[in-house]
């Protein structure tokens, strides 16, 4: 049960991992322009990391410290709330960066548009990657039978 897969599987997984990660990052960063956003990209990235987990065996999960993941998750959450709080001059979640032309305020359709939304997508993506990965790692390490 604890045998990892063959060398071929590992290599193929490593190869595809690059594409999965690029695709995930694309989905997150273009969230305000194209379908997708923080959550979708985050799940895709998490799925990539989990592919590593499957291909390289579950002991791989031990190499990534649990604390790092929970820190990243917390940072993602705080960043999201801070960005939402920026709008307190008007109302919570008010997109002040865009309405006041402070940052990311180019014309709709350009990459640097959308105000706080791309930043929010980033923080949500961070939170989702860290959350799902840590949940899965906890699950896969559970019971300590693979060692």
């Amino acid at each position: 049960m604890t045998r990892t897969f063959s060398r071929i599987v590992e290599t193929v997984a490593d190869f595809f991992l690059i594409f999965i990660i690029v695709f995930g990052i694309y989905i997150i960063t273009h969230g305000h322009l194209t379908p997708g956003g923080g959550f979708q990209g985050g799940v895709v990235l998490a799925a990539g990391i989990l592919l590593l987990l499957v291909a390289h065996g579950f002991s791989f999960a031990r190499k990534i410290p649990e604390e790092l993941l929970s820190d990243l998750e917390a940072i993602g959450g705080i960043a999201f709330i801070l960005l939402a709080s920026l709008g307190f001059g008007q109302s919570f979640f008010y997109n002040i960066l865009w309405h006041e032309k402070l940052a990311f305020a180019e014309q709709v359709g350009r990459f640097f548009s959308g105000g706080a939304i791309p930043l929010m997508n980033l923080s949500v993506g961070l939170k989702v990657v860290a959350g799902i990965t840590s949940g899965m790692f906890a699950l896969s390490l559970f019971g300590g039978e693979e060692s």
Binding site: D71, A74, I75, G77, I78, I81, A84, S85, F88, F92
Partner: peptide
Amino acid sequence: MSHLPICGIVVYLTAAFLTPLLYKA
């Protein structure tokens, strides 16, 4: 507009994400 309705929720959520970071400190 008064922000009181949302404040309570924001306070709880911020603290919820801050505690795991601060716990390590």
